[in-house]
Amino acid sequence: MDTFLTFALTGVVLFSLGLQEVLARPGVLRMLIAVNVMGSGTLLFFVSLAHRHADGPDPVPHALALTGIVVTLAATAAGLALARGLHRLRAEGSGGRVEGGRVEGGRSQGAGYERGRSESGRDEQGRADR
C-alpha cells in the first residue's frame, strides 16, 4: 500500500459515498455537501495519480486541482444562492412573509442560528413533507 494507492482508493470511496447520497435525493443543502464530497474524491484520485512519479510529483494535475478547489467553492456558493432564492419563493407561495430577505414562517423567530443548530434530526424529518 503506497501513498498513491491509499489515496486513490480513498478518492474512489469518497466519490461513491457522495454519489449515493446525491442519488438518494436529500435536501438541497445535503446534496451540495454530497457534491463537495464527490468533488474532493475526484481531486484526490487525480492528484494521487500525479504522485506515481518517482522524483517529484507531476505538476499538471496539481494546477488543475488547484483551480478545481476554487471553482468548487464558487459553484457551491452559486448553488446555495439558488437554494435560498427557491426557498424564499416557496415561503412566499405558502403564505410565509418575506421581510428584508429573512423568511418569517409559521413559527416564531428566535435567533435563527441557534435554531438551525439545535434542531434534532427527527424534528427536521417530521416537518419535511408539509
Binding site: 435536501g27 443543502l29 417530521g126
Partner: peptide, 14 residues
Amino acid sequence: AAREIAAVRGVERT
C-alpha cells in the same frame, strides 16, 4: 445558508 433554510422548514426528506 443552513440557518436561513433550515430555520423555517426542515430540509430533510426521507
